[in-house]
């Protein structure tokens, strides 16, 4: 492993996408997760995502071999010390992240950069118990990380300039455009997209228009790649609610109070693509089934109002 090794902590979807993106950019990377099983699944997903890229002519088999050769995995937190940069992609809760940062802070050399992929939690809070908070920063990669050419970087109150510059250089090396904010949960993208999803759900709830028409209107009207409801399914409706609650706590802004229907869907297990059902229904291949949008007239039968 060279000095260029990056560590990605957490082998769930975002961690797996990040590992793929970092290795594709030419860096050696270690994926760490306490669960052997998660690591195995994560690496298998990277492998199959690269195969899908080859099938779309996006990669050659030689390039895939080179990318896979750059990826190592480990169940040991202590291996985080091998990276010059550690990016954490754990669940979006303050306690979990703060605890991990405290651990990493003790394990890694003081100049190792500790980054959090958190979308809605303050980096200053995450690094509150670190001895060396100047090397902590938030780097929010958006899914699908390999394709989205944006990284939002948020400096904590104690992040130093060298850490910030190194994070920007790293993002640029990955061919991503950087937008920077100061200690701002939600950054720009999450701050703005959540109220849009919330309003779309309210439009649906009030019976103004069905799912397909809401998404088509927003897609065509504003040149978006996906409509807000399809996007909520992609992010995961439970995650959307979680983000909204985090940002409501942060801002006390009413626009982050989740629409009733969002919570009902989560309770019913309609979490979006990952559960094959959200605002739309999805086949086992993850592709949306035609005309499967949630029908407002069925809502009262499906969920007690």
């Amino acid at each position: 492993m060279s000095q260029k090794t990056v560590v990605v902590y957490g082998a769930a979807t975002i961690g797996q996408e990040l590992v793929q993106a970092v290795a594709t950019a030419g860096c050696d990377v270690i994926l760490i997760d306490h669960s052997e099983d998660m690591l195995k699944k994560g690496l298998a997903r990277v492998d199959s995502c690269l195969d899908a890229e080859i099938a779309r002519w996006g990669l050659t088999t030689g390039e895939k071999r080179a990318i896979m050769s750059r990826i190592k995995s480990s169940t040991q937190v202590s291996d985080a010390a091998k990276g010059w940069l550690v990016i954490e992609t754990l669940k979006e809760t303050l306690e979990v992240k703060r605890q991990l940062f405290k651990e990493l802070d003790a394990i890694c050399k003081p100049d190792t950069i500790l980054a959090s992929n958190s979308a809605t939690i303050s980096i200053t809070e995450i690094s509150a118990e670190c001895q060396h908070p100047q090397r902590t920063i938030a780097m929010h990669f958006q899914s699908p990380i390999v394709k989205v050419p944006l990284v939002e970087i948020s400096r904590g109150l104690r992040t130093d300039e060298a850490t910030y510059k190194a994070a920007v250089r790293f993002a640029n090396m990955m061919n991503k455009t950087v937008i920077s904010v100061y200690d701002c949960p939600g950054f720009v993208t999450t701050r703005i997209i959540l109220p849009m999803i919330n309003q779309a759900v309210k439009v649906l709830e009030e019976g103004i228009a069905p799912c397909e028409q809401i998404d088509t209107a927003m897609k065509l009207g504003f040149g978006l790649n996906a409509g807000p409801l399809a996007l909520a399914d992609k992010i995961g409706i439970d995650t959307v609610v979680f983000y909204m609650e985090n940002l409501y706590t942060e801002t006390f802004d009413q626009s982050y109070l989740p629409a009733k229907l969002l919570k009902k869907l989560v309770r019913a297990g309609y979490k979006g693509i990952k559960s094959n059902r959200g605002f739309y229904q999805y086949g086992e291949d993850g592709l949306r089934i035609d005309n499967s949008g949630l029908k407002i007239e069925q809502l009262s039968q499906t969920f007690a109002r």
Binding site: E53, R56, W57, G58, L59, T60, E63, K147
Partner: peptide, 16 residues
């Protein structure tokens, strides 16, 4: 037809 991105098309023409 294949909904390819610019990097994918670039690769198709240059490497495949």
């Amino acid at each position: 037809q294949y909904e390819l991105t610019i990097p994918e098309m670039d690769n198709l023409l240059n490497k495949h």
